[in-house]
Design a protein around this nucleic acid. Sequence first.
DNA 1: AGATTAGGCCGCCATT
DNA 2: ACAATGGCGGCCTAAT
Length: 319
Amino acid sequence: MTRATHRVAVLALDAVLPLDLGIPTQVFGYTDELPYRVSLCAVAPGEVRTTSGFRVRAQAGLATALAADTIVVPGFAPHHRAAPAPALDLLATALHRGRRLVSICTGAFALAEAGVLDGRRATTHWRHAAGLAAAHPAVRVDPAALYVDEGQVLTSAGVAAGIDLCLHLIARDLGAQVANRMARRIVAAPHRDGGQAQYIDRPVPAAATGSLGPTRAWALEHLDQPLTIADLARHAHCSPRSLSRRFAAETGLAPLRWLTAQRVGVARELLETSGLSVDEVARRAGLGSAANLRLHFRRRVGAAPAGYRKAFSQAATGG
DNA sequence: AGATTAGGCCGCCATT
DNA sequence: ACAATGGCGGCCTAAT
């Protein structure tokens, strides 16, 4: 996106899920430092009912939504109340006009009903994935993804995944640094990858997004060895200076910071799943010595390695 | 815990 | 005119 403000319409259907409604409004509208202008739209401006009985005031109607660059459909209760026809028409029209369409949770049902998801990959809350697939055979439902980015049409799983998707959009629009900064401000985990499973808190292979994807994947396989910027640059066939720059653009982190973050992640997993000594964990994670591991672990996880392992095993055994 | 030192980070500018 | 690149150098961080 360029400098111009980007209009985001949050399209509240009836029986909307209040948490889902809040996510896009809050994330995009969190600070006016971001070039987003958020409006809450409904088929008829006025009060919108939420599933928990709250009433929210939508200041704008469908015309405003149609003028927006991005339309977000939060989750609603599609089985209690079908999405109204005007809203479905709006979504179909917006698609043809090249607008970006986003759903959170069961909001995907409205997109599917509007035909917007036909032939596309999409996801929704895992409890509704089978229902979505059954009702809309033309939609390629991925029940495990946190979110799915089909370019113009993006869908996400539950509420938390909605946050991830919003951050992903900010990264797309404004770069990874801005998204990471926002994640920090709203105290979310930075950049969970969309391909990540809904209930496994561990990225399988990190997505090869951006031109440095292969280099990052390669680095992940050699985390236990010392890696310098020169090594990474060599692998990426560019200069160290460019490597740093592109790394920052794609991950929001400088190369060494990213490496350290990954290494602490490995150490954390080793502490959770193995009985290796702290020193051995440090070595295998590429952090050299126990002293060094302690330094970074405390900095990033907020606990000492041994204490973390103890707390984790107690929690895992239900103690 | 503090000092040392190698290496990383990043703004700036010339180059492509 | 523009965007991406790569080298330079000063300041900062991190590992020992």
